[in-house]
Design a protein around this nucleic acid. Structure first.
Length: 866
RNA sequence: GCGGGCGUGGUGGAACGGUAGACACGGGGGACUUAAAAUCCCCUGGCUUCGGCCUUGCAGGUUCGAUUCCUGCCGCCCGCACCA
């Protein structure tokens, strides 16, 4: 008996797979395909347990699909641009490229040690000019198509990372990487017109049934479509002395409640509204107020604490339908310039913010919607605005109508008067892609003092990053580079300057999945390959990208479709968002966090510090993070237990979408199971019939234990296949263990038993192969085969053996279990009822009473109602 | 505040509206060992007068039957948030 030597064995099979190109993607493929993809990693230096989880999940699927006969594309690459490389450059004086490529080569080896079924020939690296040149061309095409543009706008500025952030990258008012409080700055920026696809991105969610509901809801909320009306308020009286000509047409507002127009008490504009800025030029008080508003943070606390404040402009607006009404125009701190039109009409009775504002500035509160059945004259508003349904009142031609009806009527009258129209607004903003950083893809634009921004001619692409940059001063090294940016204007030939901003790194990850279809293509994509492989059939990644990468990629795919690059509009057909990997936390007597390796368990729930034996308090299990020190380096576990152990553990303990607790005992359990499998084969190996030996005749109709094992085997095939299809990997493992338990329990040594044992062991090995591929290959050899298991097809269940001859039927009296029946499959209702009523337990429970009713669900249950 | 999810043994978790707790982890007992490790076997939701009774966060409802569907609470988690 030999102990399973994972070290030698895993290396042996990884080499064998590699040498035989076992995971090469088929060229010129025909027939069914499966594109299995996990979100590619940022090359930070070392893999972490989150990587191990996501790549294991994807690999189980990819290996399974390959065994099922699909053409499989399962590639890997590197999301290689990004800030950590620059920070490393600043701290350690290493060039970002060198740092990145070193990390890649280390992490590639680490991933290879996991035994992933990756086609490494398709690797892409986004910081390679051969990669990013394509996105420079895409950008120029987007520009031509009107999908990219430049404008000055208020942006989120991260003062620590010295760069702009997209709205999606601001979490709770803080930068998603640096955690620094984000500031508002006005800058010239390049934008991608994601809002052009607002409706499509929203409606497209309905075509993604294989996405988690919650990701779809998060995107839906993020897009935030609201239907309402845009309407114009004319300024009252002669305002020509105060307001420039441009505002003579009045103030446009957006509202979702046009029905409440008769309850309007004021008009308010954002501090950054053009009208406010114009007025402020001659009004120091207003100017001070605006500055005060801009200084206000955007964090949750800041917003919660901030009082609704406004300042009168001295202007008044005419009510569209009430000739006598003049509404005061305020500049107010709670109006956002980048939503709707940056201006509102306030209806205090039916909006809480407007009510707060009205109470503060003593404005009239006139209810115009009253709940059904309430007398309008009795309906008053106190501290709470009424936002529910009802009928209109105090609203002239709207009186008596319900809310929806009133909305339609108001819009139609506004249209007739030329003062408004239906309008749909989105919360989604265009995607600002300019970043003031070095380690990103250069934006292929040349600024000319005469011609303005000019696209770099396609023949001059790629615009490469210069290598000779210095990081000894803050800010963007590209902007400081002595020569790089000085180039002639492609239009007039005069001295121009390159754009020194680079793209947001989400740019690269928005199309990499399509590049994998033909990673060496001269153009960005080989259309035939992309048409065959796309969309990705199963995408796996973290929930944190629900509205970042996953939304950008959906937009990009549509933009690429519009520019003729691709033929699809949705990039990812199936999506699995895996949960985080968590670990217990430990603190010493001083409350300092401790690493797991510095802590020893002593008894059920007593922990001590290894160095000095002092008591350690155990904290809750939380997402692994460096700050809490509850991190486990997966490489040390792979080195100590092997990749199969880690892979098995990581899929067995929790459903993939839920958080997973990393535990030593879980790793031990997985390790012991591999040992059990190994012994199972070794113990019986000598007595098994040869591979492919004909089945002994008696097994065909036998009803003994060997035949029962055949049933178990075929049910296991059915169940495990179903588990993988439904991504229930933890159940898959449970079913594998049931099967191996059943094999271990089969005693006897006659020819039929030996044959059934071989069949069961072979099936077990084939079913376990996607999860623990190395040991299964070796067991396959032990079972006498000389081909590789990766080429062996997935087993098929025999329908006749899956169906039992008899079934156990539960018998209830008044819904309580009182006995069980063993009946032939598909026994008649009458037979089941009669047998049930004959059970002792049933008779006792019925206590001599007569059954009022007997429910019989064939093959399942009998319920006697007395 | 709005939206969504989750509450099942000591723990992770199983259960098309039909036998709750599969499969593990942990724990207990035993075997083998001089001993330990490893391995193997048995037990392991609670209570029990040994007949049973109770048990899926709490309270109701629908149903012959509810962990599953509905309503209302309680608790935890996530996302969004001055969005007009």
């Amino acid at each position: 008996m030999s102990r399973y030597d994972f070290k030698a064995n895993e290396h042996k099979w990884q080499t064998a797979w590699n040498d035989s190109a076992a995971f090469a993607t088929p060229t010129d493929p025909q027939g069914p395909k499966a594109y299995v993809l996990e979100m590619f990693p940022y090359p930070s230096g070392r893999i972490h347990v989150g990587h191990v989880r996501v790549y294991t999940l994807g690999d189980v699927i990819a290996r399974y699909k390959r065994a099922r006969g699909y053409n499989v594309l399962h590639p890997m690459g590197w999301d290689a641009f990004g800030l950590p490389a620059e920070n490393a450059a600043i701290e350690n004086h290493v060039h970002p490229a060198k740092w990145t490529y070193q990390n890649i080569s280390h992490m590639r080896r680490q991933l290879q040690s996991m035994g992933l079924s990756i086609d490494w020939a398709r690797e892409v690296t986004t910081c390679d000019p051969d990669y990013y040149r394509h996105e420079q061309k895409m950008f120029l095409d987007f520009l031509k198509a009107g999908l990219a543009y430049r404008r000055e706008s208020w942006v989120n500025w991260d003062p620590v990372d010295h760069t702009v952030l997209a709205n999606e990258q601001v979490i709770d008012g803080k930068g998603w990487r640096s955690g620094a409080e984000v500031e508002k700055r006005k800058l010239n920026q390049w934008f991608l017109r994601i809002t052009a696809f607002g409706d499509e991105l929203l409606n497209g969610l309905a075509s993604l049934p294989h996405w988690p509901e919650r990701v779809r809801i998060m995107q839906e909320n993020w897009i935030g479509r609201s239907e309402g009306a845009r309407l114009r308020f004319l300024l009252s009286g002669d305002t020509s002395s105060k307001v420039p000509e441009a505002f003579a047409a009045g103030i446009e507002v957006f509202t979702t409640r046009p029905d409440t127009l008769f309850g309007a008490a004021f008009v308010a504009i954002a501090p950054n509204h053009p009208l406010a800025e114009t007025l402020a030029a001659n009004d120091p008080v207003l100017k001070a107020f605006i500055n005060q508003c801009n200084a206000l943070g955007t964090s949750e606390e800041a917003i919660e604490k901030a009082e609704k404040k406004g300042l009168k402009t001295g202007l008044f607006a005419d009510h569209p339908f009430i000739p006598s009404a003049r509404l005061p125009v305020y500049v107010a701190n709670f109006i956002l310039m980048d939503y709707g039109t940056g201006a509102i009409f306030g209806c205090p009775a039916h909006d809480q913010r407007d009510l707060d504002f009205a109470r503060k500035y003593d404005l009239p509160v006139r209810p115009v919607v009253v709940p059904e059945g309430t007398d309008p004259t009795q309906f008053t508003i106190e501290d709470e605005a009424y936002t529910g349904p009802g009928r209109l009142a105090n609203s002239e031609f709207l009186d008596g109508r319900d809310v929806n009806d009133a909305k339609r009527e108001v819009i139609s009258r506004l249209e007739q008067a030329g003062q408004g129209k239906t309008e749909i607004t989105y919360r989604l903003r265009d995607w600002g892609v300019s970043r003031q950083r070095y380690w990103g893809c250069p934006i292929p634009i040349i600024h000319c003092p005469d011609c303005g921004p000019q696209p770099v001619p396609e023949a001059d692409l790629p615009v490469r990053l210069p290598d000779d940059v210095s990081f000894d001063a803050p800010g963007n090294p590209l902007a400081r580079h002595p020569t790089w940016k000085h180039v002639p204007c492609p239009n007039c030939g005069k001295n121009g300057e390159r754009e020194t901003d680079t793209f947001d790194t989400f740019f690269e990850s928005s199309w990499y999945f399509a590049r994998y279809c033909a990673p060496d293509a001269e153009d960005a994509f080989n259309r035939a390959a992309a048409d065959y492989w796309l969309p990705v059939d199963q995408y796996v990644g973290g929930i944190e990208h629900a509205v970042l990468h996953l939304l950008y990629s959906r937009f990009f795919t549509r933009a690429l479709q519009a520019c003729g690059y691709l033929g699809i509009s949705e990039p990812f057909d199936g999506l699995l968002t895996q949960g985080m990997v968590c670990h217990e936390t430990y603190r010493d007597g001083d409350g300092k966090w401790l690493y797991p390796e510095d802590v020893r368990r002593e008894g059920a729930d007593r922990f001590v510090k290894i160095s000095d034996g002092s008591a350690v308090s155990l904290g809750r299990s939380e997402k692994m993070s460096k700050s809490k020190k509850n991190v486990v380096d997966p490489q040390t576990i792979i080195d100590a237990y092997g990749a199969d152990t880690v892979r098995l553990f990581i899929v067995s303990d929790s459903p993939p979408e839920r958080d997973l607790d990393w535990t030593d005992s879980g790793i031990d359990g997985a390790w012991r199971y591999l040992g059990r499998l190994w012994r199972l084969i070794e113990d019986s190996q000598a007595t098994l019939p040869a591979p492919g030996a004909p089945m002994p005749a008696e097994l065909g109709s036998d009803t003994g234990a060997a035949f029962e094992l055949r049933r178990t085997v075929n049910k296991a095939i059915r169940d495990i296949t179903d588990d993988i299809e439904r991504l229930h990997f933890n159940r898959m493992v449970a079913h594998l263990r049931e099967l191996s338990n059943a094999i271990a329990d089969l005693k006897g040594d006659d020819p039929a038993t030996r044959w059934a044992r071989r069949e069961a062991l072979e099936t077990l090995v084939r079913l376990a192969a996607p999860t623990i591929p190395h040991i299964c290959e070796e067991m396959w050899v032990l079972l006498g085969h000389d081909d590789m298991l990766v080429g062996v097809p997935w087993p098929e269940a025999d329908a006749r053996l899956v169906a039992d001859d008899t079934v156990t039927i539960a018998v209830q009296v008044n819904g309580k279990l009182r006995g069980k029946l063993e009946l032939p499959l598909d026994a008649s209702r009458e037979a089941a009822e009669a047998a049930a009523l004959d059970l002792d337990g049933v008779k006792t429970a019925m206590d001599g009473k007569v059954a009022r009713k007997v429910i019989v669900v064939p093959n399942r249950i009998v319920n006697v109602v007395v």
